[in-house]
Each structure stands twice: as C-alpha cells, then as structure tokens.
Design a protein around this nucleic acid. Sequence first.
DNA 1: TTAAGTGATGACTAGCTAGTCATTGACGCA
DNA 2: TGCGTCAATGACTAGCTAGTCATCACTTAA
Lengths: 336, 336
Amino acid sequence: MTSRKRYASSIDVAKLAGVSQSAVSRTYRQGTSVSEETRRKVLEAATALDYRPSMIPRIMLTHRSYLVAVVVGGLYNPFYATVLEIFSARLQDAGYQVLLMHTDSGHTLDDIIPRLSSYRVDAIVSALAVMSGAAAQDLARLKIPVVLFNAALANKWVSSVSSDNLGAGRAVAAHLVERGAKRFGFIAGPANSSASKVRFAGFRGQLAENQTAPVAFAEGDYRYEGGRAAALAIFAAAHPPDALFCANDLMAIGAMDALRTDLGLRVPEDVLVAGFDDIPAAAWAAYGLTTVVQDASRMVDQTIALLRARMAQHDAPGGVRTIVPATLVVRGSTRR
Amino acid sequence: MTSRKRYASSIDVAKLAGVSQSAVSRTYRQGTSVSEETRRKVLEAATALDYRPSMIPRIMLTHRSYLVAVVVGGLYNPFYATVLEIFSARLQDAGYQVLLMHTDSGHTLDDIIPRLSSYRVDAIVSALAVMSGAAAQDLARLKIPVVLFNAALANKWVSSVSSDNLGAGRAVAAHLVERGAKRFGFIAGPANSSASKVRFAGFRGQLAENQTAPVAFAEGDYRYEGGRAAALAIFAAAHPPDALFCANDLMAIGAMDALRTDLGLRVPEDVLVAGFDDIPAAAWAAYGLTTVVQDASRMVDQTIALLRARMAQHDAPGGVRTIVPATLVVRGSTRR
DNA sequence: TTAAGTGATGACTAGCTAGTCATTGACGCA
DNA sequence: TGCGTCAATGACTAGCTAGTCATCACTTAA
C-alpha cells in the first residue's frame, strides 16, 4: 500500500514451493500434519525468501498478542533495574515479549494507556515506585489484567505483589533496638509512596511496643541526594537519633555519606543505619549496609503467576494481594 | 475464534453510532474530513463501548509497527539502566514503543532474532556491553535497520554509535601522567568487549608517547566483584602500579574497595584510580571517582536519528559510525 | 472386497483498520 | 438555472496467518 513490503509472506513461500499457503502455515505450527516432502520444500523456499512467520495477523485472529507491558519509572534505582531484568528474562522464557513503558513521576498514566491498548497487550505490570490512586483507577478501567509491583493498592481488576513491608519494618526496628539504639530516625520515600508508608508503619509500630521516644522523620525521594539532604535535616535537630532507617538503600547510602563526610560521625559507632532493597552497592566495602532483602526473583515469579492465571482464564479472580517475605541482612552499618 | 473478544472494533462502534466503519476510522485519523455531527456520534459510541483503535491491522496494512526492539544485557550497570530509560522516553516521545529484549551473555542473539522479526519491529538497537562478531552478523542478516550502541563494529547493514573511547583513554592517561603517576595498571572488561579494547588502546597509546613502563593488565567482567578481584591480582605483583584505569566505573569502585579495605592502601595518596561511564555512584562521597562521562543523552539522540533516517528511507545509508565526544571529570580519586 | 479410519492437502474465511474510489448533496459563481 | 468545486460519506478491499472443512489417496480391519 504505502511502502514496498519488507518481508516475504507465507503466500510468497507457498508460491515458490509449489504448495498451498495452508501447507506453509502448517509447517510452522506444531500438532499439524505435513509430509516430510512438503516440509522440505517449504523450508527451502522460506530460506530462499528469508521468510519469518509474522505474529501480527495471528494477534488479530487469536486476540492474544503475547505482549506484556511493563511500566517503570525508577530505573535509577538498581533494584528496579534488576526487577526489570528478571521480568524480561522470565517473560521471554514463558513466550511473552516485554513492551517497556517509561513514565517519569510527572507524566501520568493516562498518556500511555491508549498506547497500551492500541497494541493489545495481554497484561500490564506496573513497577512504578510511586503510584497514585488515580493512576490505579486508570489501569482498572482497562479490561486487561494488571498487577502492581510493590504498591499495596488493589481492586476488583488490579492485583498486587509486594514485599512484606510491614513485617520488614518491624524487623528493622527490633534489630536496631536489640543493638542498643535509643533514638530513632526514619527517612521516607516521596509522600505518595505506599511502600514507604507501610515500612514506616511497621517500624514505628514495633518501636511503640518498646515505648521509645517519637521517631525523627524526614521525607526523601528514593535517591542518593534526597537521602543525604534528609539525613542532614534530621541531624540538624537538638537530639539527633542514634539509629536511622531509610525507606530504600540509595537514600541510606546518601545518609551514610552525609553522616560520615558532612557531619564527621561514624557508622556504626555513632549512628546505626539500615536500608531497604539490598541493591549491590549495599554490600560494597565502603558501606556494608544492613538492609532488607526484597526477594525480586520470587516477587517476579508471583507476578507472572498471577498474570498467567488471569490471561488463561478471563474471569479468573482479580484483586489478589500477594505478600512475599523479606529478610533482614545484617552488615557492618549496624554492627557494634 | 478461540476466546471471546475483549475489545470493541470500529465496526461495533459504527453500528452503534449509525455510521459506516470508514467514518469511525476517519474520526481517529487526522487529515481527514468528518463533520462535527458524525464525530460526536462516533466518539459517543466509542465511549459507550470502550473502543480503542488497534494498531494491529494497521501494522499489516502499512508494514510499520512503530516498535523498536532494544536489546540489553547489562542492566546491572547503572549506565545501561540510564541508557534504557532515556531510550524509552525518547522513543515514546517520537511515537515509537520499546520492545525490550534481554539477553544474558550466555544466550546468543540467534534465539531472539525470530521473535524480533515475528513482531515486525521497525528497527533494532543493541546496547549489549559485549557483542560478538557473529552476533553482529546475525543482526545484519535481518533487513531491519540496526544500530549498535557502544560497539565499534559496523557493516553495510549495521550502524553504530559510541563514545570516543580512544580519545577518552588517551585523556585518562594524560591526566594520570600529569598527576605524577609512574607505573600504570588497567582493568579490562571481558575479552570480547570492543569498548574495553579501544579504551585500553587509547590509554596505552598515550602512555607510550610518554615512554613509561609496560602497563599491568588484568581482565575483569565489568562488575564490582570482578574489579575487586582484578585489583587484588594486579597488586599482588612485585612492583604494583601507582595509577589504575578501569574500563568502567563499577570495576573502578570494586578496585577502590580492594585497595582501601583489603590492601590498606590510600586513594589517591598511594594509588590514583580512574573509571569510565560516570554512573551516579562515581560521585558518591565515599568514592569521588575520577571518570569519563559518556554523554548518554547525546548518544541516544544520535542513535534515534540514525534509526529514523533508515526507517523513513529504506535505502538510506547503513554502516554509519558515529562517535560522540566524552569528557573527563576529575574527582578526589586522582586529586593530590 | 468393502467399509472405516488416517494422513495429507488446498480452498476458503475470519479477524480489523486505513486507504481508494465513487456517490451525494451543498455551495458559489456566472 | 446550470456547472464546477468540495466536503462528507459509505462500499469495498488489501494486508497475512491459522483454523475449518471438504476432498483425496491410502491403509487397515472386517
């Protein structure tokens, strides 16, 4: 129509091989019967013409694209980079392809939803660190299985998979108390991050059982610079904490650098620091950060399991909330 | 056919609106003439049925999918995570979608090429840190515009965009010499990384002009652990270097940790260290790593420009090699 | 030998959109 | 009034694959 065709079609192959188009199709499907002779002729012609079967008409026929949209926002965070990597690998192994949609915090989901539906994706995974309720509503409007990654919200259409943020927050608090900390600080993610809220709830809840003083609080942005600034803010107060829990590792590392470099404090001698995610840098010798391991591999597996159930059976239950255990790994930053 | 349809079609909308399917299509295309009255009726019906125009038949008609495959392997490296992020953003802005293909070093490209062509991607970007000649040949076989990101190889079909690895290697050498270094070491990427080879060539070439001793060499894997191990290997020798250039930042950071933590050496007092990429961690207070800034934004822009030229005009020249300048940023790790 | 079963094959069609083309009606101008 | 122009519209079709169905040749069981 517009441009000249780039690919040979099954009809072209059929013509060259002297068989019907059906025979070509059958050669590439399994569970069909083709004679050795025909198969040979078809494959020969296909090689000559550089034929590759196309998914596109198949999508029209079967209403399945084998495309899964993955919406990410925070690849600056190695945790999400890893998650994306695992998603790609697992989905590819399962015969799906990843349509990557990037959204920075400013952009709303509204902009990308038309794109998603125009490509007829089979499912959507949102791994946005921050997810507004409105955005979740938007996703719910689509009649496409949606799984939120590390966002608590779920409704009839949308499922979610997240770490045990509450339990992990409690575990961090218990650990810091056990190590003798008396005054506590928390560096949060952005105000609209549900994961951060839940981690803090667990942390504060556990501390309340130990009847300690109120927790110093500062809001960060899940980034190094934000953690550094938040730490400086917290330690500008009269009675600064002797233990700091940060909603993710990047901020914890920023906080450690602020304490050591800007304030001349020692970690762990003067201040204990703990983070969340267990990104590779947490294990680097310069930091040795005590943190919560999010089991990315298992979370991804759970997510894909949910998606496949929904995709296989269109009326499979939505609104499932899956919580994956998270474990504390103790390193030098809280070792006395 | 198989499952019940999930989406309303333009025919459904036309029926409900009491117009022809053509009218529905025109309502969503620009440069077409539809009366206000018709447009209103169509949009009303579309809203009622939750209609979204589908790209799939359009792909069949126009032979353009507006899909660009991005092949990545090393998202553990924040530089590539950033590159991917920029690619998504820019391609989405340009009206394209990103089909993400992940390949670990073991996997060959052969496995994914059938997938790529079956989805009729308009173009392919390979941002693999390591790219074998065979893999590049594979990509060349496709009649799809291909751009290699940071791999030098290019042929009639394949173009490439890379940093000025040679010039940057020279600049690092000159800088270290200027800072008084006498004995040099280099930690390379995997043996088949062309970028690493070129960086080393520039580095050694510049040093040769200054007539210094041979460069201590160790092979790493572009990762933290590899850099650490390589540094230990180099410094186990009798006359260890007093300046270390690493083919990327992750290895440089690993090397710094090895020097400081494992060997009790000081950076920069005992050993100067320089890296490549300028990942965020290079600027962290604990490291302050002198490194080469790869202008990811500009590299991506160049890549997309190449792709768009090839896509617009099927016989546009392939085999273009674009070199993007890279600048040295000096931080504490080489400051005396 | 006949009937039934099996494997292989091709004609045909569904699936959905965007473009082509012909038709219609309205409008402006002579 | 008559004619050319133009916007608006609908019928029709291309684009490509996988499934359905009917047909045919051939084998096996009765």
